[in-house]
Design a protein around this nucleic acid. Structure first.
Lengths: 208, 208
DNA sequence: AATATATTGTTGCATTTGCAACAAAAATGA
DNA sequence: TCATTTTTGTTGCAAATGCAACAATATATT
């Protein structure tokens, strides 16, 4: 979708627009902090990034992972007193920065990238909401079994096949489903034993 | 926010715009179904509504509750094969309907409501994401205790006070936190006994 | 006011889950 | 290639949670 128009990031004509900045970050670098950037919206064009929170005790929590064409920014989080949030690159990352306030104020009459961005923004926001709703859907399943089956069937639906590969490592999957990894492994074993799934490596087949 | 400009719903000038429809629903009426309305966005101006899903067995699940100026619509959910979703009014409700596709195609040059809506939409979307992230935040807490304390401190922060009223009944709260109600009551009792909170009726005071 | 309905509060019990502590296998990197 | 780190897989045990089945209030309805 975002490949259309002049948002093609291979050509990268972003710097032509004074309202929009594009920057590349090395692995480990901080992309943005969620402090005093209330209106900032970021679009990850390439690479991967994570959102982490430091609470008052200094504990780190990974709140989200970004890739592909994910949107992120302080705009999507409520302000919270005694915590700090930051997004950092977990792989080399190319990021577009722009501001909610300036979005509908054209930088100049003939700024194609600006208009393309406005055009794509709703679609990107819609995509983000869909993935957030998917996450909520899984998190509201009561048992580990239901979470796994719900996650599997959504993958199966996406690939239109009973067989699919897990896009996450099992460690990451447990974290995404917000469950204990060893408990998840146990439940997967039961699912295999009871004939609900077949599993070899990261390939899963639904048998129902 | 939405009171500004001509989006003031007391005056209700919506029908002036051919791209936007406004309709009032009685309690119990179906507002929309999430089938073949991929581009529809709805804005609840007054009243309350719920999103429910019927799975292949006919089981009903309440997926979400809407009030105030909540946005909803098929645009925010992934399509799923063997389930049906619908939004119905749980109280008399006034709803604005419009379409993603037509949003940036002005109906006529001087449609103030249309422009006001575009102007407000990002803000509404941002609000919705914030509340979705709040929900995810709470759902990813591992224990009932953590969910309760996290929910309480967010309320406390909102009201800027250690004392606040629960906006939900305890039954609804358990459902929102996705936990068993009786287990929640038990945990609240422990929190009181251990001196973390004080509770009288729906009034809670944080003691830490 | 009397009845019905919904919410709140409590508890015993079975089950699920998380935790800890491993071993084995795979991936990484020096 | 060898060593180190990460991921996968397994299990016993304790703790947390859900479930069922209530009683007591509170709210709504006729």
């Amino acid at each position: 979708m975002i490949e259309e128009l002049s948002l093609n990031h291979k050509e990268n004509p972003f710097l032509a627009c004074s309202r929009i900045k594009c920057k590349v970050f090395d692995k480990g670098e901080t992309i943005t902090t969620y402090v005093e950037n209330r209106n900032q919206i970021c679009l990850l064009l390439e690479g991967k990034a994570s959102l982490i929170r430091y609470d008052f005790n200094g504990n780190e929590t990974v709140l989200d992972h970004f890739s592909n064409e994910d949107l992120f920014g302080e705009l999507f989080y409520s302000i919270s007193s005694n915590t700090q949030m930051e997004v950092y690159a977990t792989e080399k990352a190319k990021v577009l920065f722009f501001y909610y306030d300036y979005l509908f104020q054209p930088c100049n009459k003939k700024c194609p990238i600006h208009n393309a961005l406005i055009d794509q923004l709703l679609r990107l926001l819609s995509q983000k909401m869909i993935s957030m709703n998917d996450r909520i859907e899984i998190l509201t399943k009561r048992s580990i079994r239901d979470k796994l089956l719900s996650y599997f069937s959504s993958l199966s639906y996406q690939k239109s096949s009973k067989t699919f590969s897990l896009p996450l490592s099992l460690t990451q999957l447990a974290s995404y489903l917000n469950i204990d990894r060893s408990a998840m492994m146990r439940e997967m074993k039961y699912l295999k034993e009871e004939g609900f799934i077949k599993k070899s490596g990261s390939k899963i087949t639904l048998l129902y």
